[in-house]
């Protein structure tokens, strides 16, 4: 008998702090698999954000820098410019990347920094208690929008993958989900492609991964998983928005 599925080498064999049904664990694994695929573990420097993804250093067997809230792309820029031989990626949530760090991500993308950004969108501020984020869907109830997000007052959710795809500096931009085996296999392919852009020095690559947050959505794990495929994927359409090199 042969082992056909095992933990990636870049992912530490430890228990995560994520809630049951949270997709962060799955996305962590896919990122680790992509690192193993290109054999970049030894020269990888990850940049962690603030949010549930803050414990990146505890789960990945790589060097990690902890950036101030939203500033991960700026920190990654410095790391990559100081150590051009290293493989640099940031791992950020939607409260971090799409709210507090909007300026940093847009300018890092516009400069075409040779980094990879993994953006986990769960439509809420997960760690701080489920407040409304710029990505919160219209009508979604959160702790700071108890009657649901009002489009006239709060605006419509930001679609980051499409927004960044418009910038000249961006080489690759895609939105993926990990809620079903089919979507997960595609997500794995796109994450590997995003990493390949940096491995080959082809420029800025961006992955938006839709994730469930059962705790803050007030749902059980299966219902939250279902919501990603229906309500979320309906507004945040999955797909590749920019692929300049056709890798």
């Amino acid at each position: 008998m042969q082992q056909v599925f095992k933990r990636p080498v870049s992912l530490k064999d430890v228990q995560t702090h994520f809630c049951p049904g949270c997709h962060h664990g799955t996305i962590h694994r896919l990122v680790a698999e992509a690192m193993d695929e290109y054999d970049v573990q030894k020269r990888t420097i990850g940049v962690a954000s603030v949010g549930c993804s803050v414990f990146l250093y505890g789960y990945f067997d790589i060097d990690v820098v902890e950036a101030p809230h939203g500033r991960a792309p700026a920190v990654a820029t410095g790391v990559k410019r100081a150590r051009p031989d290293s493989f640099v990626f940031t791992y950020q949530g939607d409260g971090d990347l799409a709210a507090i760090g909007t300026a940093e991500i847009i300018h890092a993308a516009n400069r075409g920094e040779d980094i990879t950004v993994i953006f986990v969108n769960n439509t809420t501020y997960g760690m701080t208690g489920g407040q409304m984020a710029p990505t919160t869907l219209v009508g979604q109830k959160t702790s700071t929008s108890p009657y649901g997000r009002n489009q006239h007052k709060d605006g419509a959710p930001i679609r980051m993958a499409e927004l960044l795809a418009q910038l000249e500096g961006v080489a690759f931009s895609a939105r993926v989900a990990v809620n079903s085996p089919k979507n997960l296999i595609d997500a794995k392919r796109q994450i590997k492609k995003a990493f390949r852009y940096q491995v080959e020095g082809k420029g800025f690559s961006f992955i938006e991964a839709l994730s469930a947050c059962p705790t803050n959505w007030g749902m059980n794990a299966l219902a939250a998983n279902e919501r990603v495929g229906s309500e979320m994927a309906d507004y945040f359409r999955l797909g590749v928005y920019k692929n300049t090199e056709n890798l």
């Binding site: 008998m1 082992q3 056909v4 599925f5 095992k6 997709h23 664990g25 997960l184």
Partner: peptide, 17 residues
């Protein structure tokens, strides 16, 4: 088929074939 292991967020499943 290992789909269970692929979906597991906690990498708690090992598959042999």
């Amino acid at each position: 088929c290992a789909l269970c292991a692929e979906m597991c967020p906690d990498v708690a499943i090992t598959v042999f074939k």
